[in-house]
Design a binder for these strands. Structure first.
Lengths: 126, 126
DNA sequence: ATAAAAACAGTAATCATTACTATTTTGCGA
DNA sequence: TCGCAAAATAGTAATGATTACTGTTTTTAT
């Protein structure tokens, strides 16, 4: 990722302009509003590059799609297994990271906590 | 999942007999040692059923494969982004679950914590 | 024993992701 | 400013994990 490109800037803006955790195809559709000819391969390549350079993170949930997040601060995620939304939550403590680094002797570079369950909306709308 | 089947039993045994977090194709290859004619579709179907009935859990990491775990106790996972192994860790506390349920008003049914980083072995073998 | 329901093996289809190619854009040094 | 090598792009083809389908076999209950 040495050279500037308009496409990469648009993709990053899309991610930074939402607090959702979108899939590639959603990012693609949003980017096309600004750049109608942008290629899907370009979206994939730039997401990989942006992740590699630490400007975005990837969120893995069990729906078979890649999800990305423009918020790189350490935070928690809640995944609703009913509506399949991913919610952000502030991280109340960082004790776990320290605990694991000491006990496993590992170096933790990213912290991704996923809680699965049923969210407030979904538990109301049975 | 109303009827017994030998195939389902073998698949569950495979998962309960390892402390790794195998992919479908690994489970398939292990199951074939006992049942040489078992079908890949049968493995997928039973993994879905076993997960639905709470006998196994799915672990999502960003490698594009489904991973499963025969240990359904609440515990943490560490994912090495170098060797791509997933490690189990005991959960030192359950405060986060309570915190989130109170603050989000949600009902958490599963707790999946993934730490990404580089594990002990991989940090030695540069 | 028998019949309906469930599960199976085997194969084909789907579709998110990756790879490839020819063309265009970017950055840098002359 | 010009030219060139590196990087990036659009568009298309290939890959491969997962799902769907079909005809047959197994299971369970009557």
């Amino acid at each position: 990722m040495k050279n500037y490109s308009k496409q990469r800037e648009v993709i990053l803006n899309v991610l930074q302009g939402t607090n959702t955790h979108p899939t590639v195809s959603w990012i693609y559709s949003q980017a096309r509003k600004t750049l109608p000819n942008i290629s899907l391969g370009t979206v994939y390549r730039n997401l990989t590059e942006l992740k590699k350079s630490g400007q975005i993170i990837e969120v893995s949930v069990e729906d078979g799609f890649q999800h990305f997040d423009g918020n790189t601060d350490t935070h928690l995620h809640f995944y609703c297994t009913k509506c399949h939304n991913i919610y952000d939550c502030a991280c109340p403590e960082n004790q776990l990271k320290n605990y694991l680094e000491e006990n496993l002797g590992c170096n933790i570079t990213e912290q991704k906590l996923i809680f699965n369950g049923v969210c407030k909306n979904c538990s109301v709308n049975i």
